[in-house]
Amino acid sequence: MYTDKVMDHFNNPRNVGEIENPDGVGQVGNPKCGDIMRISIRVGGGETITDVKFKTFGCGAAVATSSIATELIKGKTISDALGVTNRAVVEALEGLPPVKMHCSVLAEEAVKAAIADYYTRKGIDPVPIVGCDGKCESCRV
């Protein structure tokens, strides 16, 4: 049912854990629905994401999408990271079953929520930059 790439990221997830004293944290999903992703980021000079870690409660696709999302944004600038869409996540995993597409959406939302939190902590309104504040109910369906 899953591609080799998904299974690789499931069995050897990259960047698992939580950054201590992070610059931004985003958590999306809902335990009732069986998916929760939490991404924490460290942001260095030039607004570059120098480190990123994730924790995920969820199915194989949820683990794999969060893992690859951390790879896709690590070392990137925030504006590049904001360009990582759920499509990009699916492509990087060489495909996901149709019923698992929502996991890629969650991964995109988790990244955005972490970046929104980064701006909020700095006292900058994230909405014009990220498109949302990463805290509304739509990320918690």
């Binding site: 899953y2 299974m7 499931f10 069995n11 629905c33 069986g34 998916d35 409660f57 969820g58 199915c59 194989g60 696709a61 949820a62 683990v63 019923v99 698992k100």
Partner: peptide, 29 residues
């Protein structure tokens, strides 16, 4: 604090066939 499908996949990696009544196996939430 554990999701069923991910457990089934992890067990498969260890050579064990098992199943879960988790939502993810049925495609609904």
């Amino acid at each position: 604090a554990v999701e069923g499908e991910s457990m089934v996949l992890a067990l498969d990696f260890g050579g064990i066939c098992a199943s879960s009544g988790s939502a993810c196996s049925s495609g609904s939430l």
